[in-house]
Design a protein around this nucleic acid. Structure first.
Lengths: 240, 240
DNA sequence: TGTACATCAGTGAACGCGCGTTCACTGATGTAC
DNA sequence: TGTACATCAGTGAACGCGCGTTCACTGATGTAC
């Protein structure tokens, strides 16, 4: 078959880019830096598009590339597909979750104010990594099977880690593993719905963070839920 | 501007439909019946496509029309857009939820086995309306703002109804409205995650219902969660 | 019952568009000598 | 330090495809007389 494409004969400098930031003065930087920077721009662009209310499944490679200020073909230098970009976002989000648990664990079990403290940490993290949390919340139930499964298995892992932490509390020392898993799962569920409420309360379709008042209201509600759940613990007769 | 379309001059009977069921022998039926039937076929086709693992947002009007055995243009005789079709599905799903509450309410509060009974009713309904539940679970977090909001407000309404029912239990008679709302919300959350577990356990990407064993396992887990939650109730000091 | 006309659900063809993917290319960065 | 060549991130153009939407149309059903 004949190659029907006309050989490139355009004069140099003729092409006008219409991208937002037309690559400012070819500053000197290493190839590795440039690569890393574009990769990050693609990830940021995807999060940014989703912030504007577009679901991950409806996100197109071309939109992401455009928002990142890069030609569609350049996308392939970093990800083989949108699925792969999504998995990279899951990975980043998981790091945020892990750091949350680490912080909560930091000064050991202080049964008195543990709920209050945990909620504070939760909301601080959600505020800081809002876009990643929004991505996870959205893709968790999305039609994309690859992402859905990745997120589900990470959520289970997270609940397991939490279960191990819970086992350190005296009241829970006698609980069976499966009961601890259940309790951790319920805590995680409560956190997830808190996160969803937080994101839903973000004005402008998730573009801005919610007002401090709205956040305080949701945090308080979450505390009440966790407190109610905690009241059940001493009443439970754990069986293996 | 000139109408560039060639006037239709094709001989009658020339066109060959490639649709699955090429409209069998023009049986006699009323226009209204035919209309209703196609509308239902479109709704079923949408559910069917989603059953195959496609998210609502990724569902195209053309796919739905094709699966319904109808030409794309015919879609517009029934819905102005896919959003509108989605809202019709939400409405159908809400009916299923209402019927669930009605059934649970039927023989009044029987504190002894109320949890066991409720879970039985829940799973019976999920089994019967699996595709509608799957649709709601999927669209609940999807990128489609219209559907997301419709589903959220219906969920809140559902929780409110449940709260009214809960108020009938003697242990809860003294509870403030907002505490009842919270409790109902937590029950609903637990149900939702049970539904998600049920759907996730469906083999073949949701095409078939889960095995009776898997269902029994999930039902049992749900019962345990609700039981734990119920244990907290007498301990709670409700304040308005 | 029979006839002439109206209604309207569904058809088939066409449109312009954004999509994912490919390709040979450019030109700055990196390396060997 | 200077030169010649290699590497490779990003480019621009092209492709074929499925999409949503429009339109004049067909022909069965419905209605008025």
């Amino acid at each position: 078959m004949v190659n029907k494409r006309t050989p490139t004969t355009r004069p140099p400098g003729r092409h006008v880019t219409r991208h937002p930031a037309p690559r400012p003065a070819p500053e000197r930087r290493s190839q590795a830096d440039r690569r890393q920077q574009t990769r990050q721009a693609l990830l940021d662009a995807a999060l940014g598009q989703m912030e504007a209310g577009i679901g991950f499944e409806a996100l197109s490679l071309r939109r992401v590339a455009r928002a990142a200020g890069v030609v569609p073909a350049a996308f392939y230098r970093h990800f083989a597909s949108m699925d792969e970009l999504g998995l990279a976002l899951v990975e980043d989000s998981v790091l945020a979750l892990r750091s949350m648990l680490r912080e909560a664990r930091e000064d050991g079990p202080a049964p008195e104010r543990v709920i209050e403290r945990s909620v504070k940490i939760l909301f601080a993290h959600v505020r800081e990594h809002r876009r990643h949390f929004a991505f996870v919340a959205q893709a968790r139930g999305s039609g994309n099977a690859v992402l859905r499964h990745a997120i589900r298995s990470e959520t289970k892992l997270f609940a397991s880690e939490l279960a191990t932490d819970l086992a350190r509390f005296p009241v829970l020392r006698e609980w069976s593993t499966s009961d601890l898993q259940m309790l951790a799962g319920m805590f995680v569920e409560t956190m997830i719905s808190a996160i969803e409420a937080f994101l839903e309360a973000s004005p402008g379709g998730g573009v801005q963070p919610p007002t401090p008042e709205a956040e305080a209201r949701i945090a308080k509600q979450t505390e009440r839920q966790l407190r109610l759940l905690a009241l059940a613990i001493p009443q439970w007769r754990s069986r293996p």
